[in-house]
Design a protein around this nucleic acid. Structure first.
Length: 498
RNA sequence: GGUCCGUUCGUCUAGGGGUUAGGACACGUCCCUUUCACGGAUGAAACACGGGUUCGAUUCCCGUACGGACUACCA
């Protein structure tokens, strides 16, 4: 019996969406589309202390930019609304109560201070404190207190949490689609808090309840969740939902480019590259770079991200979103973490930039320049840059007369031959009516031939007199773009000042 | 510390009992070219270690080492 595939991306609105989260969303999306299923977006905002204004919109905009479309949930609605966990409190409360009634969960009144003290005491003895079957009989909860005492405390408004009564001795087996069977003993799992004292559920309860109610078939999430996955299995079991439990796939982590550990914002600053899809403005006014604003094309980002932890098993490198959908399978996801190498992202960007048409790029990035000219400029620079905005800066430099000249080239190439050749070329240019690359080139070679000077002797110096630079794109085309008057003016200036 | 997960070129990875261990990025060299870039060619570069199993292990098993994640009334 195969039910329709339903996957979810469930971020917390705590700030900018991390690029690892974007990859998780991507993989969820790819699986959903591959299987003709549904992609949900759910917001896990059960920690009101970490809520950040604007984060939810940021998530939506980021996914939207990359073409990761949401079929159901935040922003689009659906049959299981609301999709914001803070708006589902009553639902969680109901199931928590059910667990209490069935003696699968219990009230606990221990304060944070008391628990901290416990932890310290255990640590002093060289062991770790665990709120579990081994210790719960000695703590302040509805298992040790009488029913009357418990009731009285609750009615008196004393803060409490609800904890899962994790079985003392039970082997938990979990089949992960990427890692295969994972075995954990219940004695190593503590009695996790299900409902916090503020009435909000913890992630554990909320995600299990929601995934069940929303009929999620595959939970695809980061490896950091693997240690708590057995607990979630226990929860499905306690709630009587084990037979319809979703399948799990824990994705390998995105690692720092050098050294070890999870990729962080700090690595991005250090390496000068973004770790967020979009630019993010912090409430304090500071900003964090975004791939989009840095000039990464969305095709490059999705292709790059898809290949961090997954590959098609062929030698094809370039994949459109549709091709990714067609090729994607969970089986081909890797187990080991992947280091984040921004060089590869840049390479993808360059490849996708080259694929764009000159006209399109001209319209988008050189809108302030005459179209015909803009297209020529794009053609000149498209294959030489990594980011589209570099075309604009190159264009600006090209259209501006040089303010200085490459000294190394001047020192070695500014000789009599160069001076005579360039002077003659300038004079000949005055009489050239059809100022296009081919004609300009003919003019140059004709003049140099008359003087018996080899082309190679003056080319680089000619480039310097016109652009100030020792290297660059096709000079003849560059001159055509600048126009006759401008080129002659630049030559004159160079001839008199150098 | 405990629990869990992992380990093929510098990086992303393919492969899988017998292979010249393949590709891509980055790097070197050469070609193309008015230079640079693009492109093309080419080179250097890897199975963490130790035991098994086996005629034969990089591949399977077990250890060790190393790395990582988790260990909150955060997700």
């Amino acid at each position: 019996m195969s039910q329709p595939t339903r996957v979810r991306f469930a971020p917390s609105p705590t700030g900018a969406l991390h690029i690892g989260g974007v990859r998780t969303a991507l993989y969820n999306y790819l699986l959903a589309k591959k299987l003709g299923g549904t992609m949900l977006l759910r917001i896990e905002d059960t920690d009101q202390t970490r809520f950040v204004e604007g984060a939810e919109n940021y998530i939506i905009e980021a996914l939207n930019w990359l073409g990761i479309t949401i079929d159901e949930g935040i922003g689009v609605g659906g049959p299981h609304a609301p999709y914001r966990q803070s708006e589902r409190k009553d639902i969680y409360k109901k199931y928590a109560q059910q667990l209490i009634d069935e003696d699968k969960a219990y009230y606990a009144f221990d304060t944070s201070e008391e628990l901290d003290a416990m932890r310290q005491a255990f640590e002093a003895q060289g062991s770790a404190f665990q709120y579990s079957a081994a210790t719960r009989t000695r703590l302040k909860n509805s298992l040790t207190l009488s029913a009357e005492e418990t009731k009285a405390k609750i009615e008196a408004g004393e803060p409490y949490v609800i904890r899962l009564k994790v079985p003392a001795k039970e082997e938990i087996r979990l089949k992960d689609l990427i890692r295969d069977w994972v075995h954990v003993h219940s004695s190593t799992i503590d009695d996790k808090v299900l409902m916090k004292s503020d009435g909000m559920p913890t992630y554990h309860l909320a995600n299990v309840v929601d995934d069940h109610l929303m009929e999620i078939t595959h939970v695809i999430r980061g490896e950091e969740w693997l240690p708590s996955a057995p607990l979630h299995v226990l929860l499905y079991r306690a709630l009587g939902w084990e037979s319809t439990m979703p399948q799990f796939a824990h994705l390998p982590l995105l690692l720092k480019p050098e050294g070890n550990g999870k990729l962080s914002k700090r690595d991005a600053d250090l390496g000068g590259f973004p770790v967020f899809p979009l630019e993010w403005k912090n409430p304090d006014g500071s900003t964090a770079k975004g791939f989009r604003e840095e000039g990464y094309l969305k095709e490059a980002v999705t292709n790059f991200l898809a290949f961090l932890g997954w590959n098609p098993g062929t030698e094809q490198e370039m994949f459109s979103m549709q091709e990714l959908v067609d090729a994607f399978t969970l089986e081909r996801i890797n187990k080991a973490g992947a280091k984040f190498d921004i060089n590869k992202a840049k390479w993808f960007n360059q490849q996708y930039l080259k694929l764009r048409s000159d006209e399109e790029l001209a319209r988008e990035y050189l809108s302030d320049i005459d179209v015909e000219k803009a297209v020529k400029i794009v053609h000149l620079f498209k294959e030489r840059v990594t980011f589209p905005q570099e075309i604009a800066s190159e264009a600006k430099a090209l259209l501006q007369a040089p303010s200085s000249y490459d000294e190394a080239v001047v020192a070695s190439k500014w000789n009599d031959d160069a001076k005579r050749g360039i002077a003659a070329f300038k004079e000949a240019l005055v009489g050239l009516d059809n100022f296009v690359a081919d004609e300009i080139k003919h003019t140059l070679s004709a003049e140099l031939e008359k003087l018996s000077i080899k082309m190679g002797k003056v080319m680089q110096m000619l480039r310097v007199t016109i652009t100030g630079l020792g290297a660059g794109p096709d000079l003849m085309l560059s001159m055509e773009i600048m126009g006759k008057e401008e080129v002659i003016a630049r030559l004159e200036k160079a001839l008199t000042t150098l």
